[in-house]
């Protein structure tokens, strides 16, 4: 096909739109001045400030813990749900189940947050558990919506999975459970890794749900950032954003390179 000029230009403008704000944010994180938008010289002092802010560091640590735990719970639940949806063609309540799995994907955050908070309050007053709100309740809330994401990722991998591989293992004497661990799991492992990473980042990123279900003294990183940002642009948030962007960029880059390396194999195998 002939290539016109329209598509490349449109795409370039689109990418410029996506990246210009991020790039300017990174640049200004090295700005000397407190006035974030006026360049007055190169400095890394905001990074230093960042690492001497105990509130920020504490929130970051809490967020990382929550993200790791809820992504792990979601990994197990989402994988089980995906196996059920792909492999069990018919069972009672399948429609309800698939609805419950995928609805959190699109459910507005404010609803999810409010609903879980009201549940926790109701449970506490009737069952006495969970006592108060904090890390535990945030983990439960995050694991719930991350399950949906993990499920989608694993589901798509499982549905283009050649069933005869599993049948071959069973034919050679492996029980269904053995087959799952020997054959299915290693083959869908990349999907599990990306599902976990997705859950981890989403949990790390969530402001709204965490705001509803957190308790006193358990402010996550986004909550702290939000309260800072509401007061206006602050250079140490720029520095923090730059660090997060750098980590994510490296991670995504590594994942893409791994995928590209693995690709010629998959194309033939």
């Amino acid at each position: 096909m002939r290539r016109g000029w329209f598509l490349p230009i449109a795409a370039s403008l689109g990418f410029a739109f996506l990246y210009a704000p991020i790039v300017s944010l990174v640049i200004f994180s090295f700005n000397e001045s407190k006035l974030v938008t006026v360049w007055s010289g190169f400095s890394t002092k905001w990074y230093g400030e960042l690492f001497s802010d105990p509130q920020l560091l504490g929130a970051a640590w809490l967020s990382l813990q929550i993200a790791a735990i809820s992504a792990s719970i979601a990994l197990v639940l989402g994988t089980l749900a995906a196996v059920a949806l792909v492999r069990f063609r018919r069972f009672k309540g399948r429609t309800l189940f698939s609805g419950m799995v995928s609805a959190p994907l699109v459910m507005p955050d404010v609803i999810t947050g409010l609903a879980l908070l009201l549940l926790f309050v109701a449970m506490e007053s009737t069952l006495g558990w969970p006592q108060g709100r904090g890390m535990l309740t945030i983990v439960i809330a995050h694991a719930t919506f991350c399950t949906a994401y993990v499920c989608v990722v694993v589901q798509s991998r499982l549905s283009d999975f050649d069933r005869s591989l599993e049948e071959a293992a069973m034919d050679l004497g492996a029980s269904p459970l053995r087959t799952f661990f020997d054959i299915t799991l290693p083959i869908i492992a990349p999907a599990l890794v990306s599902g976990w990473l997705l859950g981890f980042t989403l949990s790390l990123d969530d402001l709204v749900i965490a705001s509803f279900v957190s308790g006193p003294g358990s402010s996550t990183l986004p909550m702290v950032i939000f309260s800072k940002v509401k007061l206006g642009v602050s250079p140490d948030v720029n520095a923090l954003a730059t660090i997060i962007i750098a980590i994510v960029a490296l991670g995504v880059l590594a994942a893409t390179i791994l995928q590209l390396r693995a690709r010629p194999k998959r194309a033939r195998g």
């Binding site: 591989l165 049948e167 034919d171 004497g173 083959i187």
Partner: peptide, 19 residues
């Protein structure tokens, strides 16, 4: 069950374990 049968199968897609 298939895993308890003295029968083996060669699959159309070969179903060789890729890993």
């Amino acid at each position: 069950a298939p895993y308890n049968r003295p029968v083996n199968m060669m699959f159309q897609s070969y179903a060789l374990f890729p890993h």
